[in-house]
């Protein structure tokens, strides 16, 4: 257990390093740079451009820029935003709460509903209810988030006009208003994940429900509820946990679009804006933190496996 844990941690560090290089390169490979965008349409003198580039440190080679940046990161300094001059950590800290609330609520909603839906489909397999739920989950998986979000806004605007559903208020200021505004984004973000998870659970539950130990459990005279939730579900959960871990990454990616549609000031909006203005320090830090978080989630999933299934140790 300790050995494989250490190996996973080593992999974790390696992946994080790779990601930092990749994040850095990808951003700098985009044509056009911050200095050109800042000067924009008005001042085209090469001297002004050169001076601003030097000021931003963009006149050095890419390798030198990476080494300087990575050195600062290792000392805990992620740099300052080009557009605001504030430390990027402050910028990110101001936004990450929105994205975390959105993704966590979506994850909770998706898991909480996917478990009963998946069990129901597996138990009622072949019935009309199963067919209908399967059809609904296919629709749920294929529906694009931005379209669903806009449709939800139209629908809610017609059903409940006057209810504030767009924008953002901090939970600490107005908890009711905060949750009100979270309803539609969470539905739009969670629905595809919910549908996907339900299908995964249905498949693994079906397998388990035909296993010998389930027949034994039934033969012992246990109640059907106990058979399904205590015996079948706990054995069918492994693929479900894996999928949930992968879909957490999807949720984070999807939140970029959902934040745009519902005007939520999250990390996704911050990053899209940073790409447009070539705000390298901000983008590098956000990418690094986001991918590290994703790698960490998967690490936690691996550890959960080890806890849930001795064979993976």
């Amino acid at each position: 257990m300790t050995h494989s844990l250490l190996r996973r941690i080593g992999q974790l560090l390696l992946v994080t390093f790779g990601v930092s290089v990749l994040a850095f390169l990808l951003i700098h490979l985009i044509p056009g740079d911050a200095a050109e965008l800042i000067l924009g349409a008005e001042d085209r003198s090469p001297e002004a451009l050169a001076a601003l580039r030097a000021d931003l440190g963009l006149d050095r080679s890419l390798f030198a820029q990476y080494v300087i940046w990575a050195g600062h990161v290792l000392q805990g300094d992620l740099g300052h935003s080009i557009s605001t001059g504030r430390p990027v950590l402050e910028e990110i800290a101001g936004r990450i709460g929105v994205t975390l609330e959105l993704t966590l609520l979506s994850m909770l909603a998706a898991i909480a509903l996917a478990i009963p839906a998946g069990c129901l489909m597996a138990v009622l397999r072949g019935s009309a209810a199963d067919a209908l739920t399967r059809l609904l989950t296919i629709i749920g998986i294929t529906m694009p988030g931005f379209w669903l979000g806009t449709m939800l806004l139209y629908g809610a605007g017609a059903i409940a006009p006057g209810v504030p559903l767009i924008g953002w208020v901090p939970f600490s200021v107005d908890p009711v208003g905060n949750l009100q505004r979270m309803i539609l984004p969470v539905i739009a973000l969670a629905l595809p994940v919910l549908a996907g998870l339900a299908r995964v659970l249905r498949a693994s539950m079906q397998e388990v429900l035909f296993a010998d130990f389930i027949r034994v459990a039934r033969a012992k005279g246990l109640s059907e509820a106990r058979v399904i939730f205590r015996h079948a579900l706990s054995n069918a959960l492994i693929p479900f946990i894996t999928s949930a871990g992968i879909l957490a990454g999807y949720l984070f990616g999807g939140s970029v679009v959902i934040e745009q549609v519902f005007a939520l000031p999250g990390l996704g909006r911050l990053m899209v804006g940073a790409i447009a203005e070539r705000n390298y320090p901000l983008l590098q830090a956000a990418l690094l933190l986001a991918t590290t978080a994703f790698v960490l989630v998967n690490f936690v999933v691996d550890v959960l496996y080890m806890a849930a299934d001795p064979r993976t140790r």
Partner: peptide
Amino acid sequence: FNIVPDAATRQIGMAGGT
């Protein structure tokens, strides 16, 4: 000045009186 990046959302917000 509310910052609402999506045109459809601005349209819905105007129609709904937000």
